[in-house]
Amino acid sequence: MKITKAEVDAVALLARLELTPGETETFTGQMDAILAYVEKLNELDTSGIIPTSHAVPVENAFRDDAVRPSIGVESALANAPDRVEGFFRVPKVIE
């Protein structure tokens, strides 16, 4: 086994996902198969190979530090599930 149910539950917490016991069960089996499959990358010697994070060479893309119009408070809040005055409202953060 590449991964256990307890590890799947720990990853789910990191990923901010609540899984049902059935999902944990299914994902454990599926992730195990997928992680076993990706093991094949270890057949390749990659010592000295520079990792690629980007397919085309991109240098720092700078723009002028100038004030430009933005979408504004109303537009920014228009899709909020819960709002109060000019803010997004969320459940209690501090117990």
């Binding site: 609540e18 920014a76 899709n79 909020a80 599930p81 819960d82 997004f88 459940p91 209690k92 953060v93």
Partner: peptide, 15 residues
């Protein structure tokens, strides 16, 4: 928080 669906009944933020 900012857009889209929000579940009911979260006891705290992470929940």
């Amino acid at each position: 928080v900012r857009f889209g669906h929000r579940a009911e009944g979260g006891a705290n933020l992470i929940d």
